[in-house]
Design a protein around this nucleic acid. Structure first.
Lengths: 234, 234
DNA sequence: GACATTTCTTGATTTGTATCAATTTAGTCG
DNA sequence: CGACTAAATTGATACAAATCAAGAAATGTC
């Protein structure tokens, strides 16, 4: 942990109950088993802007988001920052350093007041042996992440900024959102970093999409999707 | 399997011995255990250009490369192809469709005469329960893949084509290659697709790097690295 | 609620890279 | 081996998006 002075450990708070019962990698187990896992899990909270870990740190814990959100980002060789993904409750990070006994390659930063649970390598390995279904859940999660990340890489290398922005908005919309209104979960600066462009270009492209009557900006962070099909068809 | 007529199944050939004893996810086990796994594994071979699977296919097997190489690529929404990675002996693919019981999102094509081993979901799940260390190996491999893919996405979004090409060449060089000569493992067309550019630009950038005395082209597919440090420092 | 600070937007300009077109080179096969 | 096909190179041009700069809006703070 890179900033021990800043975190609050609350070993027995009820908050990490949720942590176990809520996350996909554990919540398929029964009550007794989850109770057992709770004993092995530590809960911490971070204030906005605090780092859970940074690139280069060694670590032997898996970090699971309980409440709030984490910003996972990388720095390129030339020092530019790229937002890799945003972790919402139930998602985990730190698997690279954990499973490969190596250092972190990315940064995890609290985007708001955020509480996380951490489980050590030893505890997790014991659990994986005792409950192989947990392995399967983590394998599912990781293979999905590989897919998402490769999808993103493909978009970066083959699609225009406009297309990437448009499909990001449609992704945000998700299934069966009647209102057709999406709320941007991050600043435009982070959004730009996430889709691999600059804030200026995001601003301009949003205006273009609005001019084309594909979207309508409701407020600075709320956007109404007017024409989902043509957004994907750019 | 998308082209059953084209593949040759050779159930009892010695080739899939190697398949098990060679791959990182199994070769830490002892002889008897590997023998057991060999019983559950099927071996197939593919000719150059044949597809092992395509996007949209359902599948319940994990495919492990035994000999030869596979080209894993994706098509973007707009139909452009992007080379995601090249699988060499010991590497595996198909985990998304396997673990998530969903369809493939990418294509796997033999780059040359290639033999693979396949293991079904049922067999693998039994093995994972019996030998949890296999889970750990797969978790290691997948978390490394997530890291590599996110690294690539970050490069796409933050680095210039020239920098991406240069760091690709340095990556190819690897550790302790005395000769400082790398051999491109794919056509320039595939290389262009892999680093997210066009063949024309690859050609031009290689010339620029040569003009800068950072590399020297020996033959069409062999390149001598003259100045590793400055290649990374572009 | 007014001030300060960051974020966002808009404009003018530059630049990197894609695209199109034409050779040249390399690879393949009868 | 020469003919054919695909791959690679080179040049000219077009264009998307980054950069630089400045003002507007939003957000946070005392």
């Amino acid at each position: 942990m890179s900033n021990e002075n800043q975190l609050k450990k609350n070993g027995c708070s009820p908050s990490h109950q949720g942590c176990v019962s809520m996350v996909p990698i554990f919540n398929h187990l029964d009550e007794v088993q989850m109770e057992e896992i709770m004993q092995t899990v530590q809960s911490y909270s971070f204030k906005k802007g605090e780092l859970i870990y940074r690139a280069g740190d060694t670590s032997n814990v898996l970090t699971i988001v309980n409440k709030g959100s984490l910003r996972i980002y990388r720095l390129s060789e030339s020092g530019k920052e790229q937002l890799v993904r945003v972790l919402k409750p139930g998602a985990f990070t730190g698997e690279l350093a954990l499973f490969n006994e190596t250092v972190h390659e990315n940064y995890a930063e609290a985007m708001e007041e955020t509480s996380v649970c951490q489980i050590t390598r030893e505890s997790l390995e014991k659990l994986l042996i005792k409950y192989p279904s947990i392995s399967l859940k983590i394998l599912q999660a990781l293979s999905t992440r590989v897919d998402e990340s490769e999808h993103q890489a493909t978009q970066f290398s083959t699609e225009s900024t406009e297309q990437r922005l448009a499909s990001y908005l449609v992704d945000l919309l998700g299934e069966g959102n009647e209102s057709m209104i999406v709320t941007l979960p991050m600043t435009k600066k982070d959004l730009a970093s996430y889709i691999g462009t600059t804030p200026e270009t995001v601003s301009r492209k949003l205006k273009e999409l609005e001019d084309m009557k594909l979207i309508k900006r409701i407020s600075s962070s709320r956007i109404k999707i007017l024409d989902e099909d043509n957004l994907l068809f750019l």
